[in-house]
């Protein structure tokens, strides 16, 4: 920080302000998480009696002995939480894999092939981008009813496999980062079309692939309205629906709700920490590169 002279005082103040503001923003954002993490370990009496940790004789003036894993044990014994976790992982990972592959294939075809009806498909995809999902709730429910797919995973997975948004994203990416010459030479080398796609094209769009997997995984993990409407058997419920059903008019099990929320958001947070860079790049690529 040597080169600054007269302005250094001013700069110092503005730097301090920046740190103060950012720290404040982070504190405000993280406070609910801290509250959640603490609340999940509190017992019924302390839950609303103290805002954060119960005060006591222990280290830092906290009654640590009043905290317990009780709420966590309860969600796994009294409720079927292990099952809900399995369902969520199943739905999110399967949807992510299937929709990513479908979207990548569709995007590839639209970007790198000439075929009859291509412009029509492209127009349909672009139109579909502006259709709000809630509009399709009622007719989809009716369709699933007639197909006898209500209360089944197929009823949730099949509609999620055709993401117009994903096809659109992958088409853009393929146009930018898959050179036609490379595909040509692969063909000349006698490489089959599917093989070309999986071994040459997909690795080229690796960042987009990671980002889209993550977007789709997160979207399914946090999806509530579709499983809520389509599933009826509690054994099939993902975390979002299972957790939401703990809130009731006459009595809400707050200890279990907070413990359940913590368990529900932890895997996603972990996944994000691992894939942070890819995710952010994928998110912003559509907007920023334009």
């Amino acid at each position: 920080m040597r080169p600054f002279r007269k302005a250094s005082l001013l700069l110092g103040i503005s730097q301090t302000m920046t740190y103060v503001l950012l720290t404040l923003a982070s504190l405000v954002t993280l406070a609910p998480f801290y509250w959640l993490a603490v609340a999940a370990f509190k017992n019924k009496e302390d839950f609303f009696a103290y805002n954060f940790l119960p005060p006591g004789e222990g280290l830092f003036g906290v009654a640590w002995e009043r905290l317990s894993l009780g709420n966590f044990t309860r969600i796994f014994t009294e409720l079927d939480f292990a099952n809900n976790i399995l369902n969520s992982v199943f739905l999110a990972s399967t949807t992510a894999v299937l929709s990513t592959i479908t979207a990548a294939m569709g995007g590839y075809a639209l970007a790198r092939f000439e075929f009859r009806g291509r412009n029509l498909v492209l127009a349909v995809v672009l139109t579909a981008l502006v259709i709000p999902a809630p509009l399709l709730l009622a007719p989809s429910y009716q369709l699933l009813y007639h197909l006898n797919l209500l209360d089944s995973y197929a009823g949730l997975l099949l509609p999620a496999v055709a993401p117009a948004f994903g096809v659109f994203l992958f088409r853009q990416t393929m146009l930018n980062s898959v050179p036609p010459s490379l595909i040509e030479s692969a063909r000349i080398d006698g490489c089959g079309e599917l093989r070309t796609f999986f071994t040459i094209v997909l690795p080229l769009v690796r960042p987009m692939l990671g980002a889209y997997l993550m977007i789709s995984f997160l979207g399914t993990w946090n999806n509530f309205i579709n499983p809520q409407i389509i599933l009826q058997d509690a054994e099939k419920f993902p975390l979002s629906v299972a957790l939401a059903s703990l809130q009731t008019a006459y009595r809400s099990e707050y200890g279990m709700i907070t413990a359940g929320t913590l368990v529900s958001i932890a895997p996603v947070a972990l996944l994000f920490l691992l894939l942070q860079k890819e995710f952010i790049r994928g998110l912003t690529s559509g907007a920023v590169k334009e």
Binding site: I101, T102, A103, M105, G106, Y108, A109, L110, F113, E114, F115, R118, V121, V124, A128, I131, L135, L136, A138, P139, S140, Q142, L143, L158, P159, V161, A162, A164, V167, E193, L194, F197
Partner: peptide, 27 residues
């Protein structure tokens, strides 16, 4: 070949987006 690549998307899309879209008008 190109149809093979768009088929999975197109079929599900037609069934679970385009059809319900028209059905929503009927509804």
């Amino acid at each position: 070949v190109p149809y093979l690549f768009v088929a999975p998307f197109l079929i599900t899309f037609a069934l679970f987006t385009v059809y319900p879209l028209f059905q929503s008008i009927v509804l």
